[in-house]
Design a protein around this nucleic acid. Structure first.
Lengths: 324, 324
DNA sequence: TTATATATGTCAACCGCTTGACATGTCAAT
DNA sequence: ATTGACATGTCAAGCGGTTGACATATATAA
């Protein structure tokens, strides 16, 4: 590959000069600048970013550790992050932890070794200490860890909104399908908001926990079928994600339960499939785009040594479609 | 950050020795090895991979350029690729071209500058030459470009399978919703296989092209509604992707057309949502996992300077569910 | 005329690690 | 006593760029 030296020689200048046009610093006449640019073109010169990263001590790479990019919520988020971050010149490294501690640890070390400029944590199986040892800008999604800035949507509000909708529709016997409540995740506030709001209206919801392995869809249907069969007469289900909601739709259809007539259903996330589902899912929309931008902005600020807000909670909105 | 020098000093050896235990080369006594390892632990030493990449001339990074990671087909593929590639020690850089030439070009240059060890191209808006200029291992999906190895599923066979299923179900008036046939994509062979097979049975399918911007879902419903209304009495639709199929389901439901009774529907890809849809979609399954592995294997071989097969077509399978 | 901004060059250290060349020393086997 | 495998060290160049220090030359403004 052609190096800066090759360019310098061919252009009849020194590497310092070439470096100057490359980085726009120091004095350079338009003449020289053009000459150098031309040679770069001719030689198809691409500066070696690895070498640059080494000296600059900035890799311009962001790492994102998530359970799996195959999950639409994460893939939509990764998409938004990459789109926005690329505007800053950042690249995005994807790491699928598969919710395994060992993988998560490996990735953290890897990102550290690769001197990424920031880490976005969307998978949280490790102890607090491991994250802190990262020693570089980091933000988490939906989990509060020590002094690490976190981003989340207003889960409590999400629960409230869902509850209020059920109430306004006159539901009497409702259930919430939650994630693993024993995990220290902010998303569990949804359940809290949901329950508390319903209680104010003298309704005691059934709480149904989906295992901790909640990114594994294969067990969903069995569990959800179980829920529906054990609790006849349910007239409202608040699912912890749109994917779970889709499974509920299928389970209901299989039993001849009509949605929304007999059973009302609310999802969570508003991934693009929520609208595509049949019937289209009423859901609590997380502001994925805004959360993604915020993540990048925070990391960028942290990288510049700026202080940032630790708690970043964005509002959710109810998107009513055809399941309520 | 602690460097190899710090480790060497603290362990009372030279950097050469530390480098030796790091890379497992040369003679090293178990004693020294342990001593060095211990110091690494204590100092929380993480070798700077950027520096290593610079000398080794291998970044251990793979780049993947796709229209958008938000599309389930690509996110599932990225997931499979990342999972498999991480076993080789490769990291995955995601690039969303959004089907824009300028972005695609930028990413190609970026990957070149970052000296990635391989590129997976799933977005093809540029001229052949641009890809060749990349000068490093590259594989493409679903497009044949000069001497670049490509991977694709057997699209023609996919079209055949769909056609045969319609025939066996006794469909008489069928349509295919294809992508942009003017693009030089192997996926267009689906249409060919479909049409040719049907013609052998004296059926002339209606071919309906979805614009080239086929990763933009927003226009789907209007177009598909149009198709259904303009061609009353359709009893079979072969959609170019499961997502399109989901839109067909909705459009049909909105018009009271029952699937599969009145209209049979076959999707393509078998993304995980195909099964989750209501009704579950009968589809042509692309072997995403196998294709992904193959991509990594090919790149890895190319990186080692080995020769690889240029044409890599993997068989598809029909997965019959509830829409046929 | 003098001061100052502009334009370029030379030189060399540095980023953190790898690696080849070569020297030296230990220890066990012959 | 000799040989050779093993263990470690020293030295230094190289990967491709960046950057500060300093020198010099020209052009322009005061």
């Amino acid at each position: 590959m052609t190096t800066i030296k090759d360019v310098a020689e061919k252009a009849g200048v020194t590497v310092t000069t070439v470096s100057r046009v490359l980085n726009n610093r120091g004095y350079i006449s338009e003449r020289t600048r053009e000459k150098v640019r031309l040679v770069m073109e001719e030689l198809q010169y691409q500066p070696n970013e690895i070498a640059r990263s080494l000296t600059r001590k900035r890799s311009m790479v962001l790492g994102m550790i998530i359970p799996t990019i195959a999950h639409p919520f994460f893939s939509e988020m990764a998409n938004a992050i990459e789109n926005y971050a690329s505007g800053f010149g950042y690249k995005l490294l994807i790491c699928n932890s598969r919710m395994e501690q060992s993988k998560e640890k490996e990735y953290i070390d890897m990102l550290k070794s690769n001197r990424v400029d920031g880490v976005i944590m969307g998978s949280h199986t490790l102890d607090v200490q491991e994250y802190i040892n990262l020693q570089r800008p980091i933000v988490t999604f939906d989990r509060r860890i020590a002094d690490i800035p976190y981003i989340s949507s207003d889960n409590y509000q999400g629960g409230q909104l869902a509850a209020q909708l059920f109430i306004s529709k006159g539901c009497k016997k409702v259930a919430i399908i939650s994630g693993d409540l024993s995990l220290d995740l902010l998303s569990n506030l949804r359940t809290q908001g949901f329950i508390e709001t319903l209680k104010q209206h003298q309704i005691e919801p059934i709480v149904f926990q989906l295992g901790s392995d909640s990114f594994d869809r294969s067990t969903y249907d069995v569990l959800i079928t179980e829920l529906i069969e054990q609790h006849q007469g349910l007239d409202g289900i608040f699912a912890s994600s749109d994917i779970v909601a889709m499974t509920v739709i299928k389970a209901a259809a299989a039993r001849g339960i009509s949605i929304p007539q007999q059973l009302k259903l609310i999802g969570y996330d508003d991934i693009s499939f929520a609208e595509l589902a049949n019937p289209a899912i009423t859901t609590i929309r997380q502001p994925i785009e805004a959360m993604s931008k915020l993540a990048v902005d925070l990391l960028d600020k942290l990288a510049q040594g700026e202080q940032v807000e630790l708690e970043n909670t964005l509002p959710v909105t109810l998107v009513e479609r055809d399941t309520t």
